[in-house]
Write a protein that binds this DNA or RNA. Structure first.
Lengths: 252, 252
DNA sequence: GGTAGCCTAATGTCAGACATTTAATTGTAT
DNA sequence: ATACAATTAAATGTCTGACATTAGGCTACC
């Protein structure tokens, strides 16, 4: 019985796995220098190119960083929350777009996660978090704001709410989920009327957070989720109508 | 004013970014074939090795897959939940271990997220989910179980709870968080007594889920979290004592 | 008509060379 | 002795050309 189906090809993937195991398993510590490419090539009995391809794979996952010059080389990278966060956003965004995840499913996941940190945020939020949220609400009320800027402000608002929980792991997980939703959210073009509705709910959230009222935040988030789904449904219906009766030819 | 700090070096990273933008931006569709390495080399005016390094970077993120032989090449990969999940586990695990995230912080994040899907799971769980959980509880009660097997069963139990919500996005996010916690959980060696306590709480969760009692699940999860943190505190205290008075020399 | 064998295009691997970067060393003048 | 400039060495980054391997398609033969 075989323990593992080892494809003899893809040497660079095998070498990358071997080094990754060393990092994950703790044989290689943070900031420790790997052997030089030439040494690794000899160690694994492959050419330098193959080693380089393996190292690039690891670099793509932010597991190592490289430095040129004397006393340069590949070093085990301390994975920062920022790097992990950036990767997660890319992955989550693609996951949603490529698998045709419906707006409802993504929206449900997002608000379920966000509501999870509402009680913590109610306990621990600082005046800074509150000030950020108020500022974003103010920005969202400006009439001249573009749709893109409105969405970005929306993300910043929710980000502040999540950060208020004071738990970096939670922030990392949630910020990815919220930001990955953005392309889907952008499909909802916001009318002046819907912006008002959203701002009202944001204000309710901020007020509840100011009063450290966890239940109030939760209720406002539930309401916001319901409203977002209503909007999406309306947009979807409008699209269906438009497809049945296509818009007039504007080539003239 | 510069729009971007373009390091002239690291051509392979630039090319990888260019192709990644094409994929994320929708210029390249799923299962579409990229130009051959030779063609890409000419297009970007670099050598084939550089192109290959760029492609390996993308392959490391599961953005492309490659096939050898005639009519082979690099194809845009449909990112599956499984692949994304595996990547997230690796990333999250490293993030926790490399940044010295405390057990309390990680634990809080995990249970906050898990409680987020309890109401959904109460609504939608199928008999299958319940059966899985009961089976895992039964396994956890076996006296001969190793610590590793107990932890694995614990993960499977919670995974079933999360899957019960019937939202793949939620499952993807949460499973990563739960599994990334495993190394930290493993640091708590489970005594027979603590296993009993955990099984009791798992049973409470399963019972509440069977009765579709969201509040009951939530309460049991809160209790489980508190117990896990108590255990961790006890282990930490024991370690401190051991360091102050090292264990007797066992070389004899 | 089916099958075996060749053909071809593509990735996988290798070897060697040169370019570039950067820290350390050496040399020199003050 | 110190400050500064030039050299050196070690490492990654890039290029070139070659060969190995794979796998789909085509052809020729039975």
């Amino acid at each position: 019985m075989k323990t593992e189906i080892v494809r003899p090809s893809d040497l660079s993937a095998q070498i990358a796995d071997a080094i990754r195991d060393g990092i994950v398993g703790g044989d290689l510590n943070v900031n420790q220098r790997l052997p030089s490419e030439a040494e690794l090539a000899e160690e694994f009995s492959v050419s330098r190119s193959t080693v380089r391809e393996a190292l690039k794979r690891l670099a793509a996952q932010s597991l190592i960083r490289t430095q040129r010059g004397a006393s340069g080389g590949a070093f085990v990278n301390r994975l920062s929350f920022e790097e992990a966060y950036a990767q997660q956003v890319t992955t989550s965004t693609l996951l949603l777009s490529m698998n045709a995840v419906s707006f409802d499913v993504a929206c449900e996941a997002r608000y379920a996660l966000e509501r999870a940190c509402a009680p913590l945020s109610a306990q621990r939020r600082t005046p800074d978090h509150l000030a950020t949220m108020r500022a974003e609400i103010h920005r969202q009320s400006q009439p001249g704001l573009t749709d893109e800027a409105f969405c970005a402000s929306d993300v910043a608002f929710h980000r502040a709410l999540v950060d208020g929980a004071g738990n970096p792991v939670l922030s990392y997980q949630l910020a990815g989920a919220v930001e990955a939703m953005q392309p889907l959210m952008n499909m909802i073009t916001f009318t002046a009327r819907s912006r008002e509705e959203i701002v009202a709910r944001h204000t309710a959230i901020a007020d509840a957070l100011e009063g450290r009222d966890a239940g109030g935040i939760d209720a406002a988030l539930v309401s916001l989720e319901a409203y977002a789904r209503d909007l999406a449904r309306a947009v979807a219906k409008a699209k269906t109508r438009a497809r049945q009766r296509p818009p007039p030819d504007r080539s003239a």
